[in-house]
Structure formats: C-alpha cells, structure tokens
Design a protein around this nucleic acid. Structure first.
Lengths: 264, 264
DNA sequence: TGACATTACTTTATGGCGTAAGGAGATGCA
DNA sequence: TGCATCTCCTTACGCCATAAAGTAATGTCA
C-alpha cells in the first residue's frame, strides 16, 4: 500500500498537522466530553503500525486499540489518509537534529544516515508513506532542515545540495526497505529468509537445472561474494543488508567528496 | 500496497514462472477447451496495472478486461500474489541486456541506469513488488546477470560488486518511485503537482507564518537551488526529479570510481 | 425546570476487495 | 450412454473505508 497525503480539505489537514491551537473555545461546548484525542489516536495508530505493519493498520484496529469502534475516530480525524499523515509527522519527531559538524561533514552525514536507517527500521511503515507529495508537517521540515545543514557544510551550491539530498534519501530508504520487507515477510508468513531461500533454490535446481550455465556471474556472486555465515542472533541476510548499507554509504559519500573537490 | 512473492506452493509458483513445459499432456483432456491462458491473463494484468496502477489491479478488474469473472482466473493462476509475480517477471523481459563495454564500464552503467529508470516509469507498479524476497523468475535473473556483467568489468572483488549492485538498485528505484508516485497522485486526484504545492504553501503561510525564520536552509534551497521554470510539456517537478536522477547517478558512479581506484 | 442545540459515539448500510465452495455445462473416453 | 474431467459461473464470507442515521450525554437559555 502506498499512502498519499490526505487530499481532502487541505486547510483542515494542515491545521491538524501544525496543531493550530488558536481559536480556543472560550465557553465549554455542550455534549459529552471527548474521551479520546487526536494525540491518543495517533499514538494508537503508531502502536498498531509498528507492531503489525502498515497493512494491518485499519480504522477498526486503531479503534479497537482504544476500546472504540472505527467510526468513533472520524470525530477527531477526517479519514485514514490524514491519520497516516499525522502518524508520519509524529514519528519523525524522533529523529535527532543536533549533529556536530566539527569533525567534518562526512562524519556528520554518516551519523545522520545511520540514525535515519535505524529510525526506518523502528517504524518500517513510514517507508510506505509517499515522498512525492510530502506530508508537510512541522517535523518533516525539521528533518529536512537537519540534513540540509550538514550538506550545506560541504560548500556545494544549493542546486547540487538539492539533488544530493534526494539521492541520500533514495539510498537510505531503499536500503532500509529491503530489511523492513524481509522482516515483515518473515513475520507474516512464519518462514525465515533462510528457510525461504533454501526452499526456493532447491525447487529451482529441479525446474531449471541448466541455471549455473546461464548465470555464471550470479553463481560467482554467491560463491565468492557472500560473507561467511555466523551463528549470530542477527539473521544472515539482515547482516548482509547492513553491509550493503555501509558499503553503499561509503560509495555515496566518496561521490559527494568528488563533487566537493571539483567545486573547490 | 507492497506485494510479496507468492507464499503458497513454492513448487507450483516457480514452475509457473519458469513455464515448465515438460509433462506435455499426451492425450487431450476431457472438458471444455480453455479459452484463456496464463499468458493472456498476465498480459491483461499488466495492461490494467500500467493504465490504472497497482492499487486498481484486482482479480475482478483483470477478469473484466478479458470478459470473464474474477474466479475464472483461478483456473490458471493460484492467486493474486502469483499473478503479480508473473506480471513482474514478464515485464522484466523488456529490459535490454547487451550493453557494450568497449567505451568503459561507466558509460555502460549509465546506459543501464537510464534504461532501468525508463522501464520503471513505463511500469510503475513494478516498484511495488517487494525486492526482499525476489520473484526469482528467469527474467529477474537475466536482469541481474546483465548488470553484474557491467559491474564485474570494474574488476572490483565480488564482495564489493555484491553490495554496489544493491546500492544502484536502491537509487534507481527510489528516484523512479518519486516520479511514479507523483504521476499517480496527479492522475487519481486530478490535481497537478504545481496546483498541489500552490495550495499547500498558501495554506502553510497562514498556519505557520514564522516558517522562513525556522527553516532558513529550506528557503535557501527554494530560492537558490531551484531550476528556472520552463514552458515545457514536461511538468516542472518531473524535470526536477530527472535532474536529481542524473546528478545522483554521477555521484554514485564517482563513488564507484573511487573504489575502483583504491582497488587498483 | 423543561426545551433544545450540540457533541461523542454507535449501529447499520454500501460498495469495494480476495477467494472458498459448490454448481452448471461442455467435452472426450469407456 | 454413462462418467470423469475440465472451464467458468454464482453465491457467500469476512475483511476494508466510510456515509448516514440514531442514541445518549451535556451544556445554555427560557
């Protein structure tokens, strides 16, 4: 599922995101006192999505988590899309902002990428929120401003910074997505990555026996390129993904460094 | 929606993917002749997904496209997940394979990235198929072998190639995803990116008037870093995304080059 | 105090989804 | 001719988001 920013009443969604506290109701309104709140609903939504994944995030599930029906949420939130926007922006508040630039932009960007990676793995459902039309909540802006500060320290021109920040996000999100999806698949199917690969490759050996002949480089990648298996608690393929992240980050930063050198 | 590879009977899914033609039915079976075929269904699925997006891909929609009910498809295909796997592998067949390495690996990889980017934009739904447990169809392997051939030309060790290929895919998929989601949002909401940003930023000016003070670098990015608007047919933000792709690719290839130089 | 507006929340209903179950009709072989 | 086998259909179930209408609680005002 890809979730777009709420398309309904733009004014209302944005006001919700920025928690327009203005227009405080002077006199108390009639009717029963609200037992829920936007914050409580957003927290419940995050709890559900963290535990069961975005696919399991339904209005029913969130309502149930609060001892209410699905429809009760609509008193506080215009719809599911807007709820996801709010969840997204609330989650982003977790990201650190105060990176130290004294040891240089490269060290700072490395820390940023690692924190962001860890954040996505804590809240994998965030990866399903579309970046094309960003949620535009306050924390989204804070997160962007944070990484911009590190990138502007390279003294690259704004036009280059603009593109490189996109590239960094593509990379971190893509790398985290692989791990997130892998974990989700394991959780929902009860089959670990290792078991899955085992089953697949044995079937493949039957169905396509001429495989090694057609794909010699793939075989070479398997035999030469794989890290040795360890008896870690961390699943092997997850360590593999983490290594891909580290190596990819180095490549990217080397590329940025090349641009910086050219710019000097 | 994120789609995982079919988790049902592994043997059957893989046999379908590799189109196990063996065990040809010697004598014609009784019963009506099949009017559909796996191929026809896969084509219809791709047609629906290309035109309306992954979210609109339902068994009912595919059936209707063929003048059948949804349930008719289940004679040919075990379920929706397996259909998506088949669509994925069929689509991948479009990718070119014979890149010329004579002008060097960098030029070849550039062509590869551009073709892959264009492919994802032709079939944006492919980006929703999870990479964590790949579909493992024949064309998936061909596509991998293709890019491996270009990367091994760098003479980097297999372990490095293994990680860099992941990084390249993360980048290309991420960049393409932005454009794909942007187009999808425009198509489903009827609001262009430009109109959307216009509406949002005017509301934002009301709700958060102190914005420029809090996010000076974002403002700088807008004013200094943006490409001038043109009266092209291509939407402005899409050109922006394409530029991000070009710049990001350069950065990545520079990074790979740095690794190659170190390895020499 | 009683009438009434307002509010929180529930129930019910609509139209989507994937797919299980069972049935109808066509086909080929005995 | 009977029967097994096959394609394809209808129906049904339990999910989903959410529209519409109802219920009960709370406040203000006459």
């Amino acid at each position: 599922m890809v979730v777009f920013a709420g398309q309904g009443d733009a004014r209302r969604s944005i006001a919700l995101l920025w928690r327009e506290t203005g227009a405080v109701p002077a006199r108390p309104a009639p009717g029963p006192k609200p037992a829920l709140s936007v914050d409580a609903i957003v927290d419940a939504g995050i709890a559900v999505a963290d535990a069961e994944g975005m696919a399991a995030l339904s209005m029913r599930a969130v309502g149930e988590h609060l001892g209410r029906t699905a429809m009760a949420l609509y008193t506080y939130v215009p719809g599911k899309n807007e709820l996801v926007d709010l969840m997204h922006d609330r989650a982003l508040a977790e990201l650190p902002t105060g990176y130290d630039l004294a040891p240089g932009w490269r060290a700072a960007l490395t820390s940023w990428a690692e924190d962001t990676w860890a954040f996505y793995l804590r809240h994998p459902w965030v990866l399903q929120v579309s970046q094309a039309r960003p949620v535009l909540g306050p924390n989204e802006y804070v997160a962007l401003e944070t990484v911009l500060r590190l990138l502007f320290a390279t003294e690259l021109p704004a036009s280059a910074v603009r593109r490189i920040v996109g590239t960094l996000f593509h990379f971190v999100r893509g790398a985290a997505r692989t791990v997130a999806e892998s974990r989700l698949a394991a959780a929902t199917t009860g089959v670990s990555d290792e078991e899955w690969w085992q089953a697949r490759s044995s079937v493949l050996g039957e169905v396509a026996p001429e495989f090694p002949h057609h794909f010699p480089l793939l075989v070479r990648l398997e035999t030469e390129g794989a890290a040795p298996a360890t008896d870690d608690e961390v699943p092997h393929l997850e360590r593999e993904a983490r290594t891909t992240f580290d190596v990819g980050l180095t490549v990217l930063l080397d590329g940025i460094e090349a641009a910086v050198d050219r710019n000097r």
